[in-house]
Amino acid sequence: MNVLKKYKFIIMAFIWCLFITLSYIINFTPGKKIAVNFWEYMLSMALILPPVIVVTKLFEVWVKKETVMKHLGEESGIKGYFWVILLSSTIVGGLAVSLPVAVTLHKKGASMPVVLTFIGTSCVCRIPMTIFEATYLGIEFTVIRWLISIPLIILSSIIVSKFMKDYSLIQSND
């Protein structure tokens, strides 16, 4: 059982390769479509993720904890939310990118509600995505959505943090 657990991802990768190869051999159309989706998504992640992770790690070794704490920590007040929303609007690629950034910020002393706000707004306020949304659904829809989501996300982040006082992201991450 332990061996199975240890190698679960390798087993998964093997089964997946087998599935894709077989789909091409027996000309199984759904399998081939899924394979195309797989490569496209894989490529888009491979294009975005490595530089993002490197930059978060450089941030970890270079930026002092005090600096992040001052601007995004418990004492930062409303300014902390402002900075973090601004930062989140520049994120591309969704949760895969915003989660490592969020954990890095938290390690450096950003407060829990600020970090949760960052994760939330990085989902809904990303500038590139928003522009795309506005062109398809109209600027009115986008503006209203922003105006309702941001306060709700901040509010819920504060409430969740109150309930999760003793919970440490760093502990669960290392």
Partner: peptide
């Protein structure tokens, strides 16, 4: 140090990432 941390991070999440990509493509 930063580059080593990057490598470790990738090692840590690679399997989960593969799983996510598979799920998304499905």
């Amino acid at each position: 140090t930063a580059l080593e941390k990057t490598l470790n991070e990738f090692r840590k999440i690679a399997g989960f990432f593969l799983l996510i990509i598979i799920l998304v493509s499905l």
